Amino acid sequence: MSAPRTRVAASFWSTPRDRVAAEADRLARAGLRTVHWDRTDGRYAAAGGFTAAEASAVTAGSGLAAEAHLMVEEPLREVDRWTDFCELVVVHAGTRDWRAALDRVRARGARAGVALSPGVEVPEVEPGTDVLVMSITPGHAGSTFQVDALATVGQVAAPGHAVGLDGGVTRSIIPRALRAGATWLVSGTDLVASKDPHGWLTAARATGVAPRRDEDVGAG
């Protein structure tokens, strides 16, 4: 059986607001299927991202699927407005009532995901919960990719849930991420600004990836 194709989601965190809809359309024509909407409260993570209303409007106009990444201290208060149009809603482990927020996401008919910031211990989560490993500090778009995140990906990789990597993910990092066990990649500037987004997406969705090696997932 061939390996499953990697899910790729584009983040528009660093994209000028007046260009977001156009970039979503351009990437959709290149083969993108999912937009990754970041939302912060300015407390858990630096201010930035999108409101649910902004994200919903662009999603509806693009025809793309949507997922939400809530970098907020109280995710339970916010998940309903995102499950209205997102297939997946991700909240951060260690935030207030984060487990209840995951339960609420499921009750609303969406997939639930838990994000792990650098240095956060991997928690026990309900089977089937997607896991998003952060390779930068949340809210610090443009930061350098933290290689230690690949070890965390390897730690949480298992059948039954997607394992994602988010933060500083460039095309050059794709092979190492896939060998580490990632099945879901989130990329902002490197994908959105790429002159060859189709090639970027094709590289990320490669199948038959070689088995991971210690040097692929260990700290650099």
Rank of each mutant, 00 (worst) to 15 (best):
V209M: 11
T170N: 11
A66G: 05
F12P: 10
G167N: 11
A66Y: 02
M134S: 04
G139L: 09
T40S: 15
I136M: 03
I136F: 01
G128A: 01
A193K: 14
D80N: 12
A162I: 05
H92M: 08
E73M: 01
T144D: 12
G167E: 13
T15H: 07
D84E: 15
W184P: 12
V147F: 09
R39H: 15
A57W: 01
R96W: 15
A101S: 04
A204S: 03
A46T: 13
A101M: 00
A162P: 09
R99N: 08
W184S: 05
H36N: 02
V169N: 01
A45K: 00
E121G: 09
G113W: 07
R43M: 09
M71K: 10
D190T: 05
W13M: 14
A162V: 05
T170C: 06
R33W: 08
G109E: 01
R179E: 08
D41K: 08
A24I: 02
W98D: 02
G167T: 04
G113M: 02
L178Q: 08
T34K: 09
A101D: 03
T83D: 09
L27M: 05
A55C: 03
T137S: 13
G94C: 02
R171S: 14
G48L: 09
V153H: 08
A47V: 11
A21L: 14
R5M: 12
A47Y: 10
A182Y: 03
A151C: 11
L178F: 10
R108C: 08
A180I: 07
S56F: 09
V186H: 08
L76H: 13
E78Y: 02
A204Q: 03
G94D: 04
E126H: 10
V131P: 10
G42C: 03
L116P: 10
V122M: 09
L76D: 12
D80I: 04
L64T: 12
A3N: 11
P123S: 06
Q155C: 12
A206P: 01
A193S: 14
G42T: 01
A45Q: 00
A157Q: 10
F85L: 04
V20L: 08
A162T: 10
T170H: 15
F12A: 02
D214N: 14
V35N: 05
P75Q: 07
V163R: 05
G63M: 00
G61L: 15
P118H: 02
P16A: 05
L102Q: 13
A158C: 06
T51R: 07
A204T: 01
R96H: 15
